[in-house]
Design a protein around this nucleic acid. Sequence first.
DNA 1: AGCGCCTTGCC
DNA 2: GCAAGGCGC
Length: 483
Amino acid sequence: MSKDRVIFWFRQDLRIADNPALSAAAGTEKEVICLYILDDETPGEWAMGGAGCWFLHHALDSLDKDLKGLGSKLVLRAGNATEVLPDFADEISATAVFWNRLYEPYAIKRDKALKACLRERDIEVESSNASLLFEPWTVETKSGGPYRVFSPFWRACMRDCPSPDEPIKAPKSLKTPKQHPRTEKLDDWGLLPTKPDWAKGFAEIWTPGEQGAKDRLAWFLDEAAADYKDKRDRPGVRATSGLSPHLHFGDIGPRQIYHAARAQAEKQDGTAKSIEKFIAELGWREFSHHLLYHFPSLPTDNYQEKFDDFPWRDNDDDLKRWQEGQTGYPMVDAGMRELWQTGWMHNRVRMIVASFLVKHLMIHWRHGETWFWDTLVDADLANNSASWQWVAGSGADAAPYFRIFNPITQGEKFDPDGDYVRRYVPELANLPNKYLFSPWTAPDDVLKEAGVTLGQDYPEPIVDHSAARDRALGGYDDIKKAS
DNA sequence: AGCGCCTTGCC
DNA sequence: GCAAGGCGC
């Protein structure tokens, strides 16, 4: 075999445009072998969840087709990347490996070891940044050290950091060997759920892959961005970009979104405020990665240690009813069912259901984190753990624990027409808005007319709101006193 | 060192 | 009005 070949290792950057490490590999003018490794071992507890696997399957399928357009294709291998990658480099006599950086603690550790191992074998390694606007180690407070509060963090990014680079174009072609290395079959990886019914609704909503991501961004900028600021909190309205899974798997990158959004603000008068708000959401993603990078135990440990002593309740029945969307609080149940049916949940509703689990049910945020990990197509370690700790009150720059979302008034406020609840809790569809978010307050004749028998068609509330609120505040008093 | 500030709320 | 407390300059 010729010695003139390099490996491009795809990870969470499943795209060919604005992919700096892929372009660097192409720039060597050597043969480029595109590799994806399914590594369930290294992440340990954070091996990809079911919904993520569904998205990954289709994103890889799409990527392979895109690579074929460049005269290449994807080579699939499963196993522990720490072994698979060096073995593969030997197998094809690669002289260099290119990849884009990841920021999960396990990935940093693995990649560092791999770098050393490959260099020991005289194989060059070059890593690039495809996933973040700002590298976590480049943003520092004036006194040195990571930010712990979002607003000053994002101000510093916008003011002091170099502007994110313009996206780079996809390579026009990739030089590939006549004899391509052996690949495993995507279909053999079992990434699609064994219960096919589960993911049935996913495909109606998501188009994994680079083109799907581009289309979604274009739709958002053309159709929704102008109203983003006003409508982003309305789960019944299609007002958010839905780019989160694409960002996680990297079939689009944040620089592409950032610059396209900025360009839209230039082009369309009156959108500046909405676009700024949208870009700030990219900022939250950056902040989560910044936190995870600097506080690697974020996914498992309370950032504020006083929460170690919080009197969490262990209650499998309550947890199960939360997971299934059977709490008797329609806004909560709508959210949990949206999650199950679509692999996604509107951000406003994520806060409501998370607050309900952690405060009304007093169940540890880690149970919620684990459930979201398995069921979200956009499950992302940084975003998931930072956000759960934010809601739980245990995180950096977190919502105070005593700020308890009221699942009834949140519904009235953000789903005023009841469209969202009626879509996901159809058994209540005929209830008037007045009682839709608290059906147990409806007079008997109203329930009867709507065809609802509580406890039969739809559950009685699992807890009483105000009693649960008091109980949660009592728990917080305990750790306040102790600290 | 002291001060302003802090995504998303509740009653 | 209430609800802490710490961050960042």
